[in-house]
Design a protein around this nucleic acid. Structure first.
Lengths: 147, 147
DNA sequence: TCCACTTATATGCAATTGCATCTAGTGTGC
DNA sequence: GCACACTAGATGCAATTGCATATAAGTGGA
């Protein structure tokens, strides 16, 4: 267990700070617009991308890095609003399969313009295209997809 | 209101993901070690850095990007444990001045090794020194100190 | 001085999160 | 076919967060 160098500590500190600031902007804009929180969008997007086969909750959990009980309740709320549908899994008696509904799709579409503008304000406005790409690449190192 | 480019959206998405992963590591390590959550450390560090004059809650709030009511209660908890002391402000009848106690200092020192190891695991282990520096610089652009 | 406005902090209450644990299936070795 | 360890998901309860608003004090004029 090596001690982190100053530059690593600094990177971590900035990561926290930048994330907090950007998230506050994004969540704030969504709320102002009377829209649901960001997590709803993420679920809807994942489900929309998954297409017809849908997704198992545990897959969504990995994709979103959410705690299991948190996701379970997030789905409760989305289901209560009619944005997603739960169905028993054919293959696995313990599990379910989630699918986005038409209403869910509509909600995702409605959120996007506000969300997009917020991303631009919180991130895009501060970086050149080259910097944005570089930042994305570096951050990806911290959590490589398919790690 | 321009739409964000793909690279900007990607940077934002990775920011969320990287932050969530790193934070989970850090908070997890603290909990395993029976230590309080990260926010406690941040407050204690800021107060220790502030030295004798202490800090007003609103200053801490800006430094930590915390919501006002959240900080108010965080201080409640820290005070209840004897880690910080509240005193009425001399200059401003509405306000208070916060100071870290000896117990608070001890707690901060106790947290640091665990926290440091977690930062190294969550961030340092994935980046070269050059990359860490580059990441810190880019993130700083998103929330420039003294903006 | 008085008033309207702003700033600093606290707080009641509802929603969300975290923790620990529960239930119900699955799979494996025998 | 059984015992056992493991995975998927839900849930009761406590802690935290978010929201709206309250209280109290500072500030800048008319």
């Amino acid at each position: 267990m090596t001690a982190p160098s100053d530059s690593v500590v600094r990177a971590w500190t900035r990561l926290e700070r930048a994330h907090r600031a950007a998230l506050a902007t994004v969540e704030g804009r969504l709320k102002e617009a009377g829209l649901p929180p960001l997590a709803w969008y993420d679920v809807l997007l994942e489900l929309e991308r998954a297409g017809a086969p849908g997704l198992r909750p545990f897959e969504l959990q990995k994709a979103m890095l959410l705690a299991q009980y948190n996701l379970s309740r997030l789905i409760d709320r989305l289901e209560a609003q009619g944005h997603v549908a739960r169905a028993a899994s054919e293959d696995d008696g313990r599990g379910q399969v989630l699918a986005i509904t038409a209403k869910g799709r509509a909600m995702r579409r409605k959120i996007w313009p506000v969300y997009a503008a917020a991303i631009e304000a919180a991130v895009g406005a501060h970086l050149s295209p080259t910097e944005a790409r570089a930042l994305g690449d570096l951050l990806e190192r911290l959590y490589p997809p398919r790690s």
